[in-house]
Design a protein around this nucleic acid. Structure first.
Length: 180
DNA sequence: GCCAACGTTGGC
DNA sequence: GCCAACGTTGGC
């Protein structure tokens, strides 16, 4: 297993400065036969530590996550579609499955399922999503999503993004309302 | 199951 | 510090 490079402590992009309460969006991949959206939902408000990430870039993105950030839950390998939305409920902390001290995870809870899952093919077929990391960085398992991409995928999913977007005011809880 | 992409490792 | 070998991810 990789040993942490000595000069690591503040990897580029690990802690982008942003205004308190300013939301960022993410996409988290999981192989559904290992950990599925249904399992995430079953965890309820307790959420789930996003363990198993063994890639520095992905880890650094998790370090950049803040409580209340929203992310797409993507089923890789099987399904290949965005199936739900999760919210970060715990900042990056050591991955209990990792004995080297190198890897970390955040905790996320399910917010809502997408009324209509958005497949990888759908994303690739949408020119406005051509620059999405899902397309350009196929192997990256934790990736940032721009607000525009977030809105577009939500639109494709039949979800009113505005209904769940604003974690805005510090300490306020984002609404978890899926449009049904 | 295959294989392309790409990140990591380790020899030099 | 370069770069070839290797391992893994994940689409197909």
């Amino acid at each position: 297993m990789a040993k942490t490079p000595k000069a690591t402590p503040v990897p580029a992009g690990a802690t982008p400065s942003r205004a308190l309460g300013e939301a960022m969006y993410w996409l988290l991949k999981s192989e559904p036969d290992v950990f599925s959206w249904e399992m995430q939902v079953a965890r309820g408000a307790k959420g789930e530590p996003w363990t198993g990430v063994r890639n520095y870039q992905a880890r650094n993105f998790m370090r950049a996550m803040r409580i209340g950030d929203l992310g797409f839950f993507y089923h890789s390998n099987i399904g290949k579609e965005v199936v739900g939305i999760v919210r970060v409920i715990a900042l990056a902390h050591p991955d209990a499955d990792d004995t080297t001290g190198t890897w970390q995870c955040v905790d996320v809870e399910a917010v809502c399922a997408l009324p209509k899952p958005v497949g990888l093919a759908d994303v690739k077929g949408n020119p406005s999503l051509a620059k999405m990391a899902l397309v350009t960085s196929m192997r990256l398992s934790v990736q940032p999503v721009t607000p525009a991409e977030w809105a577009e995928v939500c639109r494709m999913a039949g979800l009113d993004a505005a209904a769940l977007t604003p974690p805005i005011a510090a300490g306020s809880k984002p609404r978890a309302k899926a449009k049904s």
